[in-house]
Amino acid sequence: MDRSTALVPVRYVVVGGRGPEDVVADAHGRVLTGVEDGRILRLDGLADPDTTRVEVLAETGGRPLGLELLPDGALLVCDAERGLLRVDGADTAEGADREVRVLADSVAGERLRFCSNVVALSDGSVYFTVSSRRHPLDHWIGEIVEHSGTGRLVRLAPDGGTPEVLLEGLQFANGLVPSTDESFLVVAETGACRLTRYWLTGPRAGQSEPFAENLPGMPDNLWRDRLGGPIRVALAGPRVPPLDLLHRSPAGVRRTAARVAVRAPYRPTGTIGVLALDDDGTIVQHLTRRHSGFRMVTSVCEADGHLVLGSIWEHGVAVCELPGAK
């Protein structure tokens, strides 16, 4: 799909914290997100700015990124500092006592320091991504520039135990969603502007292959309605041709450039985008907005008949029109 349509903003909702990096919607149309100071927030009533409420569900003590709601009302949290966490009772009322437990804080003998996104399947297994083994979250741009290929896809069995590395060599592994029938997972490789498919069942189980390549921007978090909707892809920024060229340079050149990048001032562009793909990897919708005041879209979900955008850069979320909605 070559043509794009406009991404139309409706309102901006301040959440009282910086960097609502991932947004997920619960069965009641409420949106959950995590912010820089470690709080997990629940946003209720986004459709009406006069009644929107921001509730604090829990504090992780680290930096929450990817979120996944479980059928029992618990919440899985990828914390960039503490690892993979579980917050019990995330669907209960504000002020309830919620336990925060660590499910995994190391992988293959290494401390888990850049846990990025997570999904849980119907059999109870949990899959999560590690964006980089070289650069922590606060040096994420160093990973994008160096192109180290140290991202991972990891599995945690239903009974817990030791995390199992399924895929290595990913370029900034990020968002993660299952196919409708849970026969494969789709992993966003932000640094390579592509989506990768990892087969869970069938004759190709355990193998990976490209799912969608040469995307028009850098894919971040992925989201889909478990009822069978499209895979929505947040594009954190447009493609940068000089960066594509740098990625073909020798490793030493990229490492030097990364050291410079983490010390240089950074400001995201005003171009934002959201893709929608089907289970064949075909782009069925491309929404864009140039010169946007809302920068660096790192997540997207549907809630209350709108698209809700999260951002690791902003102090709130953007509520946009859902294409096709009345």
Rank of each mutant, 00 (worst) to 15 (best):
R3P: 01
L7G: 06
L7E: 11
V8D: 08
V14S: 13
V14F: 06
V15S: 03
R18H: 06
G19K: 03
E21Y: 00
V23Y: 07
L32F: 11
L32G: 02
I40Y: 01
D44T: 15
P49W: 01
R53M: 00
E55N: 01
A58R: 08
T60K: 04
R63W: 09
G66Q: 11
L70F: 03
L75R: 03
L76A: 05
R82T: 06
G83P: 06
G83M: 14
A90V: 12
A93F: 12
V100Q: 15
R101T: 15
V102Q: 02
L103S: 08
V107R: 12
A108Y: 10
R113Y: 13
R113I: 11
F114C: 15
C115S: 15
A120S: 05
S125H: 09
V126Q: 01
Y127G: 13
F128T: 04
T129V: 09
V130N: 15
S131K: 01
S131M: 04
W140C: 07
I141Q: 10
I141W: 03
G142F: 02
E143V: 01
V145W: 13
S148K: 04
G151W: 13
G151L: 07
L153T: 09
A157E: 06
G160Y: 07
G161W: 03
V165P: 03
V165G: 05
E168A: 09
L170P: 06
Q171Y: 12
S179C: 01
E182Q: 09
E182R: 00
L185M: 10
V186G: 13
V186E: 14
V186A: 08
R194T: 01
L195F: 00
R204G: 03
R204Y: 06
R204I: 07
Q207W: 10
S208K: 14
S208P: 04
S208F: 02
L215S: 10
G217S: 15
P219K: 12
P219R: 06
L227Q: 13
R232N: 04
A236N: 12
A236E: 02
A236L: 11
P238G: 05
V240H: 08
P241W: 12
P241L: 06
P242T: 02
L245G: 00
L245K: 02
R248E: 04
P250H: 10
P250W: 06
P250K: 09
R255G: 00
R259T: 08
P265Y: 07
P265Q: 06
G270V: 07
D280Q: 14
L287K: 05
R290K: 12
R290Y: 08
H291R: 13
S292H: 10
G293H: 05
F294A: 07
M296N: 00
M296I: 01
T298S: 15
S299L: 04
S299G: 03
E302V: 14
G305M: 04
L307F: 10
L307Y: 12
G310T: 06
H315L: 01
V319M: 02
C320E: 14
C320G: 05
L322R: 13
